[in-house]
């Protein structure tokens, strides 16, 4: 039932209340995860403050996607705690659904619903999860479509859009749920080079508005200009994290140096 005016209010409340500013919105304590016998994530500790933008990078197979997928329980963790917005993730399906509604996620392959029009893709969550009246949901959806600059595509189907447009729709779909946090799982990796910029621009705009963001990406330019903190993961561990300047100019760890030398 949250309208745009309410979001604005929430935002301003957050910024004035010192309590919420000091309390992390995501807290991961001593978390481990296994796929069968394979130990994918080991002793993960992470605190994310409201409005913080974190970029996670690392070689493929390092567990960075798995980490952010644990935050909305697309993956289960076996040890430790994950607390999102005051709710601890466990097997309780009600808690999981509550967290998922508060955490938006953007996937590498967009994962739009191909049988629904763009506008229906956007209003599905608000109507069925938030119980927003249809008309209100559609108005909000149009607003977000304008924000990602494709309102004219509202009546089309995902299959008729370019990759970049689809990914912007996917971002708008997540925003329609008024999430507290947005997770991005390699949002530009499946895009043609000329479409990467349009998606990054939308993400930069979102960051400027104060959205809490966790972004798994190889776009180091984005990391430098937007991130508050850059995290490097390798072999299921958080190896190093620092402000972008310090991270790129003065990496501490050998593995980080090697990784940066390979991609920059």
């Amino acid at each position: 039932m949250s309208t745009t005016s309410e979001i604005a209010m929430n935002d301003s409340q957050k910024s004035v209340s010192p309590e919420s500013a000091t309390k992390p919105i995501i807290e991961i304590i001593g978390m481990h995860k296994w796929y069968g016998d394979f130990h994918v994530l080991s002793e993960i500790n992470l605190q994310v403050m409201p409005k913080e933008k974190i970029v996670i990078c690392g070689p493929s197979g390092s567990g960075k996607s798995t980490l952010i997928r644990c935050i909305n329980r697309l993956e289960e963790h076996q040890r430790g705690q994950i607390i999102v917005n005051g709710t601890e993730l466990s097997n309780d399906i009600k808690n999981i659904e509550k967290v998922r509604a508060e955490v938006g996620m953007v996937f590498q392959h967009f994962n739009l619903f191909p049988h629904l029009t763009i506008i229906d893709n956007l209003t599905l969550g608000p109507i069925w999860v938030r119980k927003t009246p249809k008309k209100e949901a559609e108005e909000a959806a149009m607003m977000y479509l304008e924000k990602v600059q494709i309102p004219e595509q509202a009546k089309k189907f995902p299959g008729q859009l370019s990759g970049g447009q689809q990914q912007r729709v996917a971002i708008a779909r997540s925003l329609c749920m008024n999430p507290q946090v947005m997770l991005f799982d390699e949002p530009t990796s499946a895009l043609d080079p000329e479409m990467i910029k349009e998606v990054l621009d939308v993400m930069i705009g979102l960051a400027d508005e104060g959205m809490t963001m966790l972004v798994v990406t190889h776009e180091m330019g984005f990391a430098k200009s937007v991130a508050d903190r850059v995290m490097f993961m390798d072999d299921g561990e958080i190896v190093e994290q620092n402000s972008p300047d310090a991270f790129f100019d003065n990496p501490q760890h050998e593995r980080t140096k090697l990784f940066l030398s390979q991609i920059l």
Binding site: L74, R100, A101, F107, F113, L124, S174
Partner: peptide, 19 residues
């Protein structure tokens, strides 16, 4: 990905299947 997208929106099992 379709299941994951539905999950990430907070849809329950019944809604995911039906919609």
């Amino acid at each position: 990905g379709q299941y994951e997208a539905a999950d990430s929106l907070g849809l329950n099992y019944y809604q995911t299947m039906r919609l």
